[in-house]
Amino acid sequence: MPGPTADGAAPAPGRRVSARRVRRRLLSGAVVALLAGAVSVLPAADRPEEIDVPAVAAPGTLRVMPLGASSTVGVGSTATAGYRLPLWERLTAEGVRVDYVGSRSTGPDALPDADHEGRSGWSAARMVPMVGGWVLAADPDVVLLHAGTNDLLGGASAQATAANLDRVLDRIFVAAPRTHVIMAGVWAPLPKQRAQRAELTRRLPQVAQEHRAAGHSVEFVDVGDLFPAARTADGLHAAPQAYRAIAGMWAERIGAWLERPPDRRRASG
């Protein structure tokens, strides 16, 4: 089955990313950021009380922040930490040196780097006052954002959930203006919230577009048909095979972003 689209554009299959290209582009971005001398200061409310995240990665390493709720933790496939182990394996096989970042660290022994920012049960609304501090501490190159499911499950409308995700993006880009965000839609089936789920999928590309117009690097990926409902572990969380499909989606979008010329990265999507 073809990979999901990002704002309607299908990723090219089989793309591989060289470690040399990752090093060159990440180091180039770091130099630009240093020359710009931009330092973002967040309100105290955006700073979590305790964060223990390494501040420096090896040269040429891609700092990836898995950000979300229980699917980011890996509920439904603890043996693979959800999508995080298969994504690590995929990117490493393609020559990308990965450093997962975040203030949480959970996962199986097979996962070399278990850091993430997954908070089981959290809605996007709950993340808003905290996410800026998490991102500021972790300093990611790429954020893999999957949130909104718990907003819909809690009775929030698609409009309110889209607004919550818009505010999450605001906080991310205040904390890390040069990061790239890949924002996935809701992949859980949510049969009781089917209409709101579809409406959220319709609204989020516009949220991403408005941020791009403001100079932010963000893309939306429609994952509504990424895997069938039968491939869930409990009707809500992905089963191992579905998490592998999710990992493939993230890997394709990361690869597509890394392949863009540096001067076109700001117009992602």
Rank of each mutant, 00 (worst) to 15 (best):
G3T: 08
D7C: 13
D7L: 10
P11L: 00
R15L: 15
S18V: 10
S18C: 09
A19Q: 12
R23Y: 07
R24F: 00
L26S: 06
S28R: 14
A36P: 00
G37H: 05
G37I: 04
V39G: 04
S40V: 05
S40R: 13
S40G: 11
L42V: 07
A44L: 13
E50V: 12
P54H: 04
V56C: 02
P66L: 12
L67W: 06
S70T: 07
S71T: 14
V75M: 12
A79E: 15
A81L: 03
P86E: 13
P86L: 14
W88I: 05
E89H: 08
L91C: 07
T92C: 12
E94V: 09
G95L: 13
V96P: 08
D99R: 15
Y100G: 03
S103W: 05
S105Q: 14
S105K: 06
L111R: 11
D113R: 10
D113P: 08
A114L: 05
D115T: 06
D115M: 08
G121P: 10
W122F: 15
A124I: 09
M127P: 00
V128D: 00
P129S: 05
W134A: 06
A137H: 06
A138Y: 02
P140Q: 02
D141C: 01
D141E: 05
A147P: 00
G148W: 14
T149S: 01
N150Y: 03
G155C: 10
G155Q: 12
A156D: 15
A156W: 04
S157N: 08
A158N: 12
A163W: 11
A163M: 09
N164F: 14
N164R: 05
N164V: 08
D170S: 09
D170M: 03
R171V: 05
F173V: 06
A175L: 05
A176Q: 09
P177W: 07
P177D: 06
A184I: 01
V186P: 01
W187C: 03
P189T: 06
L190N: 13
R202W: 11
R202Y: 10
P205K: 14
A208Q: 09
A208S: 15
A214D: 14
D222V: 00
G224M: 00
A229I: 03
R231A: 14
R231H: 15
G235R: 02
L236N: 02
H237W: 00
A238R: 12
A242R: 10
Y243L: 10
R244N: 12
A245L: 15
I246K: 04
A247V: 11
A247S: 13
R253I: 08
I254H: 12
D263S: 11
R264A: 09
R265K: 13
R266C: 01
